[in-house]
């Protein structure tokens, strides 16, 4: 699956997107975040406070309990600040 990071999440992780293949027991957005968190300091810093992390799957806003599967585009970002 493809992961996109935006704003300060992108700065902390250090890249804007990557292809990931988490283990089969990772079944939802929250599981993906938990798995990412263990991949290094940047990830740990990015996901230290999940109250300021929002998610989209295939360009639709979703909660952390939303299921994910191969081929999905998952985006993780802070609350939006446009306008």
């Amino acid at each position: 699956m493809k992961i996109l990071y935006f704003a300060w999440l992108r700065s902390k992780v250090g890249i804007s997107e990557e292809d990931i293949s988490p283990p089969g027991d990772v079944s939802d957005v929250g599981g993906v975040i938990e798995w990412l968190r263990q991949r290094g300091e940047g990830y740990e810093a990015a996901f230290a406070d999940l109250s300021v992390v929002r998610a989209a799957v295939n360009q639709e806003y979703v909660g952390f309990d939303h299921p994910v599967s191969q081929g999905d585009e998952i985006a993780l970002f802070p609350p939006v600040t446009g306008g």
Binding site: F6, A56, P78, V80, T81, G82, G83
Partner: peptide, 23 residues
């Protein structure tokens, strides 16, 4: 739009770049 459209503001300040917090 301000609360739903995926945009993020980065401000250039004398202390460097700062991401704007949602209000």
């Amino acid at each position: 739009l301000k609360t739903k459209a995926p945009f993020w503001k980065l401000e250039e300040t004398p202390d460097g770049g700062q991401w704007v917090d949602a209000r």
